[in-house]
Amino acid sequence: MSQESIIKFDKVNKWYGNDFHVLRDIDLDVAKGERIVVCGPSGSGKSTLIRCINRLEEHQQGHLTVDGIELTDDVKAIDKVRKNVGMVFQQFNLFPHLTVLENLTLSPMWVSNMPKKEAEERAMQQLERVRIAEQAAKYPLQLSGGQQQRVAIARALCLTPKIMLFDEPTSALDPEMIKEVLDVMVEMADQGITMICVTHEMGFAKAVADRVIFMDQGQIVEENTPEAFFNNPQNERSKDFLSKILGH
């Protein structure tokens, strides 16, 4: 595993309004190919953290560098970053008026100026990768939740991103569909892509993560390997959180 950081948070601070200090002095280095799980109670800033990486949220203080490009208000820099960062949302956010195939070819055709045939070939490859190729002609709302989220993952993969961000990808799914999505994510993890995943699925963390980061009240409280974190949490707050989610 290469040691250069592909994502570097340097004393990053973010506020909502004047007083809500949502990210406090975040220092974080993510190495290329690393798989990171971010967990913590709600309101701890974990979603905000990963949304800063592709500039869906703006930070007010500190430096955030992604793949060598520093994220500022410079629109060109933001566009370059977004071509290399794929994101999967909790609410899927598929475009309901387009077919599954059209959802996937949208960005390659309009942003990367790829011809339609090539875009469709790449889309079908990704759909096969997530094992949903037979639904290519259907519309998103005709699919189940688990199928929609897999399409969303395929859509992000069509950009051939270097980094994949997951914002609670299974939280909106019925229990029986969570496994099919997690299986796809585990397969992806095995293929060397840098992954940052906000999730409550601790089984996934144990299976795949190189590092678990625990956040509370806008700060990184503890970061450790999964075994160390789950079996031997160092901090009171980590222990408290783990008892709540593992206890029931």
Binding site: W15, G17, N18, D19, R24, D25, Q60, Q217, G218, E223
Partner: peptide, 20 residues
Amino acid sequence: MAVTFTPIASRPSPVKVTGF
């Protein structure tokens, strides 16, 4: 990799966002 954790207090934003 245990680093001692010191909680950081909330600070007001350096750039005023609300207000007239």
